[in-house]
Amino acid sequence: MFRIFESIGRYVLLMQKVFSRPEKMQIYYTRIVREMEALGLNSIGLTAIISVFIGSAVTLQMAITLESPFIPQFMIGYATREVMILEFSSTVVALILAGKVGSNIASEIGTMRITEQIDALEIMGVNSASYLILPKIVATVFFFPFLAIFSMLIGIGGGYGIAVITGIMNPMEYIDGLKYCFYTSEIWYALTKMVFFAFFITSISAYCGYYAKGNSLEVGRASTQAVVVSSIVIMICNLVLTQLLRT
């Protein structure tokens, strides 16, 4: 129990260092753009593949489960949209990104720690925490909501595609379902969640890497720890935000 509080304390102190005034903004802009490419653009492919298949599978499942003369067919499109917007595109995509981006960040920063690259930055007088972590946080907080929107579109498109390909339902009914009881607040809810998830994935993974010590085994351990802790925090955060924003 004491170790948890110690870790939270160290995490807060690290964040204080991360959000202190940067040395030179121009350098940070360049780094933010680089990180957007490395952490955001490079995740588009994975997000697209997973979203299209989950969107298709959800549509199929709904079509099979809701097969009843008392339930109109457009409800399949409606249910798919709700699943994709409310939970999949933000929470599940965030869990997937915690695996991909989180382990990447933890191992990158952890390797920099054990090969003394972070010490080298400190010797130069650079605030290493801010220089290394802040651009990653800004990049993901800005870019991940776009990934969520992309995931919603691709997932819903996948559902439409499977309706057309298999003929399990009338595609026009699917589209009617997508329009049924649509509130833009649901999109904002999903994007708000994604902003929080992006912050936690990046900051927790960076924390695990930043305090790695020893050898490559420790870097591997830090990387695993980053994914596990980020995933748990995402689930807790999802619950809290759902309670706060939807009730």
């Binding site: 400190e122 010797i123 130069m124």
Partner: peptide
């Protein structure tokens, strides 16, 4: 530290 240079064992280049 702006007046300090250090060469690390492994180089520590980014």
């Amino acid at each position: 530290r702006k007046d300090v240079g250090m060469i690390f064992q492994g180089g520590a280049l980014l």
